[in-house]
């Protein structure tokens, strides 16, 4: 009888540890991850302009690596954000960073390589949780 109780207690303990770890599962970091797609800003925009549904199916939630020129450092609260040139003045690639410090050492005109999760296109294509 005592043995069963022990087993049940052990199972409950394992169960709660697993549940706790699942609940606190960390975000996948783009820094250190291998990109799913390597593409240029212009190619990514062209794919979205041609067929948004198709582009979403190819890039959404994927880690996309792009290299481009910084058009603008965006002012955001608690975090960093830069816009990369696509060659089209209407649409840039907005890259969101979790911390302002992530983009403290870059300036407008710099060429940078960014990895981020593609979250789709509004006016601009947005990459989130980026790393340089």
């Amino acid at each position: 009888m005592k043995k069963y109780l022990l087993i049940i207690a052990l199972l409950a303990l394992i169960g709660s540890v697993v549940a706790y770890r699942m609940y606190n599962k960390p975000h996948v970091e783009t820094a250190g991850s291998i990109a799913d797609v390597v593409i240029t800003p212009a190619e990514l925009l062209a794919a979205y302009d041609q067929d948004e549904m198709k582009a979403d199916s190819m890039y959404l939630d994927k880690i996309v690596q792009i290299e481009g020129i910084i058009l603008k450092i965006n002012e955001v609260e608690n975090g960093g954000s830069i816009s990369l040139d696509t060659g089209n003045p209407m649409s840039s690639i907005i890259c969101e960073f979790e911390n302002k410090a992530d983009v403290a050492n870059v300036k407008v005109g710099d060429q940078v390589k960014v990895k981020g999760f593609c979250t789709g296109k509004l006016m601009d294509i947005v990459l989130s949780r980026c790393s340089l």
């Binding site: 699942m22 609940y23 599962k25 979250t119 789709g120 296109k121 947005v126 989130s128 949780r129």
Partner: peptide
Amino acid sequence: LVKGFQFEKAL
């Protein structure tokens, strides 16, 4: 973009 919302926890 709905996918653009960021949360503290991945889950």
